[in-house]
Simulated assay, not measured.
Amino acid sequence: MLGPGSTNDHVRRMRRVDAAPVPGDLIFFGRITKKSVKTHHVGIYLGQGRMMNAPETGAVVRIDDIARLKDFAGFYRF
Rank of each mutant, 00 (worst) to 15 (best):
M51G: 04
F72S: 07
R77F: 09
T57Q: 02
R31M: 12
V37S: 12
G3F: 01
G47D: 09
D65T: 04
T39D: 03
A54P: 01
R31P: 05
T57Y: 00
I66E: 12
P23D: 08
M1R: 02
L2T: 07
V60F: 02
E56T: 11
R13Q: 14
R62L: 03
I66R: 10
G58A: 09
K70D: 15
Y45W: 03
F75D: 05
F78D: 07
Q48C: 10
G49Y: 05
T39R: 02
M51A: 12
E56P: 00
D71W: 04
P4S: 12
V42N: 00
M51Y: 04
V17G: 04
R15K: 13
L2E: 09
N8V: 10
R12Q: 15
H41R: 09
A67H: 04
A59V: 00
L46W: 04
M1D: 04
A20C: 08
D71N: 13
K38P: 00
D64F: 03
D64P: 02
E56R: 14
L46N: 07
R12D: 07
F75S: 11
H40A: 11
A73C: 06
M51H: 05
G30D: 10
N8P: 06
M14T: 02
K70E: 14
K70I: 11
R68F: 11
I27L: 14
R68I: 05
I63C: 03
D9N: 12
M51N: 05
F72W: 03
P23I: 06
R12K: 15
H40P: 11
R13E: 11
D18V: 14
P21S: 09
F75R: 06
P55Y: 06
D25G: 07
T33D: 04
K34L: 14
